[in-house]
Design a protein around this nucleic acid. Structure first.
Lengths: 343, 343
DNA sequence: CTGAAAGCGCTAACAG
DNA sequence: CTGTTAGCGCTTTCAG
């Protein structure tokens, strides 16, 4: 029995093949494919036929080779796609990209500078048209270290370390302030702040808002109440479990918790469940099960999907040279009081 | 005042520029950049210097132009990145891709055939190396309609409508059977099935498992208990709210719910909360807050991230021509009984 | 309005 | 081990 060689995968037809088949010049096919107007109707029809007959597909990658031509692809670097917060951001970004004919490349940095930088490098080498970036907690190389020309970048949740950098930010400070104020209004006097590293600009801003609310109420700003070690749900859970225990040295106990992101909220809720005892709680960032719990969890909601979409729209406007592109967009937050802020 | 023309953005240096700067041939730079070994050390150093001096970055897009050369980019088409289930799948896929030096392009079909097909077309035109695809509920064009050559595709959650198609599947039938069996064991006799369209292969398989469990227990297979209209959380909620009311025509009431995906579980829980009354419940697919609820929600868990990673690994093995690539991988599920299965 | 020729940044043959 | 030449699929001058 003879083994036939596997037939060589037929190569895709090229524009040249179409031109030959339709008996027109290459350039005419190019014009047709690009939707240019000035084409003889008869030729257009011959070309359409040839394309159908050959099963021709345009090679966008080749089309974008020439400098100045866009690849219609943008990149998004976040910390972790599996976190519903970032997934919502990515979804918003993706929708905006698709709506405008772009493809979205995503990557998770896992809050690691080196990983983040590697993703950015890879995306730059791929010649994506632009990037939406959420810088990692552990910063790697400064953005300014990149040798220009660098494609446009829109930062989310981050300070502007590059002059003229564009950014989409939530009104973290104001949201946190409203959250903590609601706890104080419900009677809390010693509100614990459970957050991720202060190196994260959004976190630092939320701490400011926390302090604002305390100051507004004439309460002391006690650093011992402010925790920035909740990098994960588990760490937040352990941290809050500690808060529920008897404080060392006879310090007065914590009487409420402000969870500065959705991991912290869930961690606190796990700790409450484990201890069989809960403290008044308000979280930053809404989460799916917030209204299912008893009591329902109060949160400061931000339109995360909207922020992702806004970032991509801003990026594409930048690319398109649209005039008057704002360099900084601050998105408001909304406080949803559902009951968990009360003792 | 004279407006100076914006200085032309300096073009990126090319390999040619590096070659000139280092005074070697273009091809030598190419060799260096590709990590080939046979290079004179002195030359290598001159090249390295030139690259640093010029801030040269390789253009991967140009490098992949030549047929047969990979773009090191794969695509993923799911239904909705904002659904934690798909986000977890995407995260797994992304991790596998990154680990192997690939970039991941993601797109959400919103369960719409046309949108799905458009995403696939776009990805094919971009000449991605391969695709991981979760076909939409409302099918669009059949895969076989694509004119070859088509890059490798790995399907997730889908039947093999193309000969030789590769797929990663959860053991839906077995998982559903275990879930329903646990409800029956706890005393349920009329278990409602709340799911999405039976057109979705995974859903059809879960219904089979549901029927298996009923048959095992000698219970009747009552179509009136099997609902496939829960396409969203809200629809599931309304559906379950209806089940909690008095059944029309004096039919015996439903006494337990098997929620066939995470949207259905959450919808059911919302309906329970609204009604102030709950039914025994087991859900398919774990979710973040399952253990926070009272009682904690029992689920059939699947390793969604693992499935995403497996899909990409299978795809890349296919691409690499690795021998013995399985054409079908079935991933087992695990039943977590937490209490909600009991009355 | 159409076409021929050149070239994008890079890799593949094939000589030296 | 290095360099020269051609050419990937497409767009872009610039002539007809």
């Amino acid at each position: 029995m003879t083994v036939l060689p596997r037939p060589a995968a037929r190569a895709r037809p090229t524009m040249n093949d179409v031109a030959r088949e339709a008996d027109v010049a290459l350039k005419t096919v190019s014009r047709y494919v690009n939707g240019e107007q000035n084409i003889n109707a008869a030729m257009a029809e011959r070309i359409a036929d040839a394309i159908a007959r050959l099963g021709y597909r345009r090679n966008l990658s080749a089309a974008s080779l020439r400098p100045g031509r866009s690849s219609r692809t943008v990149g998004l670097v976040i910390s972790d796609l599996a976190n519903p917060h970032w997934a919502a951001l990515a979804r918003g970004a993706e929708r905006a990209a698709t709506d405008r004919g772009y493809l979205l490349v995503t990557g998770s940095s896992e809050e690691d500078g080196a990983r983040h930088d590697a993703l950015v490098d890879r995306m730059l080498d791929q010649r994506l048209d632009g990037l939406v970036v959420v810088p990692p907690r552990e910063p790697g190389r400064p953005w300014s270290a990149l040798v220009p020309p660098v494609p446009p970048v829109v930062f989310v949740d981050r300070p502007l370390d590059t002059p003229g950098a564009h950014a989409i930010l939530a009104d973290d400070r104001d949201g946190a302030r409203a959250a903590v104020a609601s706890l104080v209004r419900a009677g809390a006097r010693r509100v614990a702040l459970v957050g991720d590293s202060w190196l994260i600009p959004a976190m630092a801003a939320r701490r400011e808002g926390y302090r604002d609310a305390l100051a507004d109420a004439g309460l002391p700003d006690d650093p011992a109440l402010q925790h920035d070690g909740a990098h994960s749900l588990t760490q937040a859970q352990e941290l809050v479990a500690g808060l529920l225990g008897t404080p060392a040295g006879g310090a007065p106990p914590v009487d409420a918790v402000f969870a500065a992101n959705n991991r912290a909220s869930l961690g606190a809720l796990h700790a409450f469940r484990d201890a069989g005892r809960r403290l008044p709680l308000v979280g930053f960032d809404d989460f799916e099960a917030a209204t299912l719990l008893d009591p329902p969890v109060s949160v400061v909601a931000q339109d995360v999907g909207g922020m992702g979409a806004a970032a991509v729209h801003l990026l594409l406007d930048l690319l398109g040279g649209t005039a008057d592109v704002p360099s900084r967009v601050v998105v408001p937050t909304t406080l949803h009081l559902r009951g968990s802020e009360r003792p």
